[in-house]
Amino acid sequence: MGRILKYVFYDLLKTRFLLFYTLFLFVSTFAMFQLDSDPNKVILSLMSIVLMVMPLISIVFATIHFYNSYEFIELMLAQPIDRKVVFLSEYLGVALSLSSAFLLGTGIPILFYGVSDSAVMLLVVGTLLTIVFVSLAFLSSVLTRDKAKAIGIALLFWFYFSLIYDGLLLWVIYTFSDYPLEKVTLALVSLNPVDLGRIMMLLTLDVSALMGYTGAFYRAFFGSYAGLVFSVGILLLWIFVPTYFSIRIFSRKDL
């Protein structure tokens, strides 16, 4: 497995995309710190990158990468190697390189300009979200044989979690506004990794947004130690469940 992982890494480095991605994050983070004197505001701007741009890049890149290395995968599978091992090395290769690109690109400027609670939370949420969307990308890749279709599914995933789901959530909240919705919305938020990441971030840097009874309820829940464990746990589930299903589909698939 280690050997295949190494080849995947080399392959990824050859495309140079990762290098550009790291550089892009690095330069934009640095620029934001340079332009704005308030580090909390910078984290706020970085948050929109982490919640919007990064999932998009992760999911599209991972899907394209999977199809580009299709021949390599086929070649490997011609050898007496378990399908699971091949798949996992591909997966780990992409997930690890994308998340380390993020950690280096944003982490170094943050280290340079001062680490705060919210900055650490940003790095944690960013890394977890990257891996979640790589998992979703691999799931969409094994669902179909057609590259264009797979990218379509991947984009749909991104669109769904970034926009459509929130729209539905808002609709639910609005329609059932006469009922106590706190616990229901808590459950509903867990069904969207982007929302979960956003709330984890909001609690560390933008508490004034969470006012009122509802806000106090969320703050009491997510702000506690148990709440943190809960949200990280749910995000890990969002990593493991799609990966599990894609491994299952991949091992039974007629390539």
Binding site: L51, L163, I173, Y174, D195
Partner: peptide, 9 residues
């Protein structure tokens, strides 16, 4: 309860 969606896209 809609405060939950603050800062979303």
């Amino acid at each position: 309860a809609a405060v939950l969606l603050w800062r979303s896209f």
